[in-house]
C-alpha cells in the first residue's frame, strides 16, 4: 500500500494543469468535459470506455484530479502501444484512494 504511485510528480503536474484548464466544478470534471479530451487521443472508443471504467474509481460519473491523472496516464501509455489493463493494477491506484 506504500508503493509509489506510477504517475510521476512531473506527469501529475502536467495532468493537473490539463485538469484545471477544463474547468472543474467542485474539484470534479463531468464525463462530458473529459470525453472530448480522451477522444482527442484518437484511441478506439471501446478502449477509452475501459480507461474510464478504470479511472472513475468511485463510479460517480465524474473524475477528480487523481482519477483524471489515472485516465490520462492510461491514454498516454496506450498511445505508446501498451495495452490498457482489464483491471487497475495496485500501483496505479492513487495513494489517496487506497
Amino acid at each position: 500500500a506504500d508503493a509509489p504511485w506510477v504517475v510521476k510528480p512531473e506527469e501529475k503536474m502536467k495532468f493537473d494543469s490539463i485538469f484545471d484548464s477544463l474547468g472543474p466544478v467542485g474539484g470534479m470534471l463531468s464525463g462530458d468535459k473529459v470525453k472530448p479530451v480522451l477522444l482527442n487521443s484518437k484511441l478506439p472508443v471501446d478502449i477509452l470506455g475501459r480507461v474510464w471504467e478504470l479511472s472513475d474509481l468511485d463510479r460517480d460519473g465524474m473524475l477528480d484530479r487523481d482519477e483524471f491523472s489515472v485516465a490520462m496516464y492510461l491514454v498516454y501509455r496506450a498511445l505508446e502501444g501498451e495495452p490498457v489493463p482489464m483491471s487497475l493494477p495496485p500501483p496505479l491506484v492513487p495513494p489517496s484512494k487506497r
Binding site: 464525463g31 462530458d32 480522451l38 472508443v45 477509452l48 470506455g49 474510464w52 471504467e53 472513475d56 460517480d60
Partner: peptide
C-alpha cells in the same frame, strides 16, 4: 464486462 441495462456512469458507452 459492462453491467447490462440500467444507467451507466461511463460517457463512452
Amino acid at each position: 464486462q459492462y453491467p447490462a441495462g440500467g444507467s451507466s456512469t461511463n460517457p463512452f458507452l
